[in-house]
Amino acid sequence: MIRSLWTAATGMTAQQLNMDVISNNLANVNTAGFKKSRADFQDLLYQVSRAAGTESVNGDEVPTGIQVGLGARAAAVQKIFTTGDLQQTGNDLDIAIEGNGFFRVMMPDGEESYTRSGAFKKDGTGRMVTSDGYPLEPQIVIPENATRLSITEDGAVNVYLDGEAEPNQIGTIELTTFSNPAGLEAIGRNLLLETPASGAPVDGIPGQEGFGALAQGFLEGSNVNIMEEMVGMITTQRAYEINSKAIQTSDEMLQMVNNLA
């Protein structure tokens, strides 16, 4: 009877984590470039009272054993890197990636991080930076006398200078891919870090094989599906309730045993 109390408690803990993941997905439904997460679970150890395949008292083989599970636990929380919907903004510094790849930005400590959010700004020196001021790598510096900015699908950055009719290319935006994007470490601020599980970064030109093309004037929205998350929230709540009911029932059964004394 005590075993069922602890087993149901592990189920409640697992469903609480699932609700935490769903809540974070819903909180970031309007975050540009956000990738939803999914909680994966696995069953715990089993107590074996009789192993399958053992001999019975009359020498026959037992076809099935007796195994009682001890609950569930979280195995992983995985990011799902499907592409979000593209939203047209008309802003020259907004860039969406149509396909695979990440923008590479430089952190203040010199470490490189990666993002799908293309909501870039221009700082006081003309550099293209994130909302937190982290510069895009390789750096793109927009001249002060630039009247218009044009970014092609393959990442070529061209500016039209005041008084000139022909564009001038000032740099190229590169993308980075990983063999296992789900292994990247999320650190907030729409940034991800390389880990041993993600594999080494591979840099390349947008539009080439394995890299998505760029779309200027667009932002990639979150890939969170509100209806899916709401359904997941309902099933998680019901699973939490049924586990709490199992604890309550086990407690009532123990109470009945105590009343026999």
Rank of each mutant, 00 (worst) to 15 (best):
F120R: 07
F120N: 09
K121T: 09
K121Q: 13
D123G: 10
G124C: 05
T125I: 07
G126Q: 13
G126F: 14
T130L: 07
S131E: 07
S131K: 07
G133W: 05
Y134H: 06
Y134I: 01
L136P: 05
E137G: 02
I142D: 06
P143M: 10
P143S: 10
E144M: 14
A146P: 15
T147E: 12
R148P: 02
R148Q: 13
I151A: 15
T152S: 15
A156V: 14
V159Q: 04
D162S: 15
E166A: 07
E166F: 03
P167N: 06
P167G: 05
N168Y: 07
Q169I: 02
I170N: 11
G171T: 09
T176G: 03
T177L: 00
N180V: 02
A182G: 02
G183N: 01
L184M: 09
E185L: 14
I187Y: 04
R189T: 01
N190Q: 06
L192I: 00
E194M: 00
E194D: 02
E194N: 00
P196K: 00
P196A: 05
P196F: 00
S198F: 02
G199A: 12
A200M: 10
P201I: 07
V202I: 08
I205Y: 03
P206V: 10
P206K: 11
G207D: 09
G207H: 08
G207Q: 08
E209Q: 11
G210Q: 09
G217P: 11
F218V: 14
F218Q: 15
F218C: 14
E220Y: 01
G221S: 12
S222Y: 07
V224H: 10
N225K: 12
N225M: 10
M227H: 09
E228C: 05
V231N: 10
G232R: 04
G232Y: 02
Q237T: 13
R238N: 06
A239Y: 10
Y240A: 04
Y240T: 11
E241D: 14
I242G: 09
K245A: 11
I247K: 10
Q248W: 06
T249I: 15
S250C: 02
D251K: 08
Q255C: 01
N258A: 07
N258K: 03
L260S: 01
L260F: 01
L260H: 00
L260C: 01
